[in-house]
Simulated assay, not measured.
Amino acid sequence: MKKTGLFFGTFNPIHIGHLIIAQYFLNETDLGEVWFVISPKSPFKQKEKITDDRQRLYMVQLAIEGVNGLRASDVEFGMPKPNYTVKTLEKLRANHPNRTFVLLMGADNIKNFRKWKDYEQILSHHAIYIYPRPFVRLDADETELGIYFEKAPAIDISSTYIRESLKAGKDIRFLLHHKVWNYIDATGLYSN
């Protein structure tokens, strides 16, 4: 069984923080691959304006192009909205019975994990690899939800900051993979 890490997110846009975390888990754990699962809309972010699904998928593909072990997944695109992770995981297990899926989750998301739809079902089928987030401390009962990789990089970059900076006309090119920056710069994405 091939062990595959699932890194869920809207990736609006994908930035170097996402890439660093994915590379860390690929290099430093037992995962054979890491998949970026691009989510159309999180049940916890209903008010957030989301860039077109295909554009976000394309930016992820640009960022990971030619990197062995990293892959973009649009599995959630055709699923009912809002997307619930438990349903996505059921679909992935059915479509890929030869893989074991592990969730990659920031400490900030672990804080709310027990509010997720059918979180017990997720835990019964999947391990969770937790990475640190700046200024987030986990309680003992939260670290028990998965394996905490405290040496993973704690990166304080957010897609929200990137979007706001682009809208304000700021140059944030070094927070993005150069191909993603070039795409955003050429299309004017996030500038208005």
Rank of each mutant, 00 (worst) to 15 (best):
K111T: 09
H96N: 15
K2T: 11
Y84S: 11
I172F: 06
Q55A: 08
S39A: 14
L19M: 11
M105C: 14
H96K: 03
V67G: 00
T51P: 02
G78N: 12
N95C: 10
D171L: 09
Y58I: 01
L103S: 10
I16Y: 00
I147H: 11
S42W: 07
L103N: 08
Q46K: 14
R173L: 04
D139C: 04
I172Q: 12
Q55L: 15
E150V: 06
W181M: 01
P13Q: 01
F36T: 03
F8D: 09
K49N: 13
A72F: 10
T10C: 08
D30P: 05
S158P: 01
N182E: 15
R54W: 11
E90M: 10
T4W: 11
L70R: 02
Y119K: 01
S165I: 03
P80K: 06
W116K: 06
A63Y: 00
R54A: 09
K111S: 08
I38Q: 09
Y84R: 09
N112Y: 07
F77W: 03
Y84T: 07
N12C: 01
E28C: 09
Y129F: 15
L92S: 03
V75L: 06
Y119W: 15
E65K: 15
K179N: 14
N98M: 10
D53Y: 14
A168R: 08
S165E: 14
K167C: 11
V75H: 02
E120S: 13
L6V: 04
A63E: 00
G17E: 01
S39H: 03
R173T: 06
I14C: 02
Y24Q: 04
N192Q: 14
N83Q: 10
Y24N: 04
W181F: 09
E76F: 08
E144R: 15
I50A: 01
I155C: 00
L70A: 02
L175Q: 07
L104T: 12
F25E: 07
K111M: 13
T29M: 07
F149E: 12
D139E: 14
I20K: 13
P153D: 02
V136A: 06
K170C: 12
G66L: 03
F113N: 10
F149M: 11
L62F: 00
I21L: 08
G5C: 04
T88G: 04
V136G: 05
V34C: 06
E142R: 09
F149G: 06
L166N: 02
P153R: 00
F149C: 05
G66E: 04
S159G: 13
A154W: 01
Y84C: 02
G106R: 03
A72I: 05
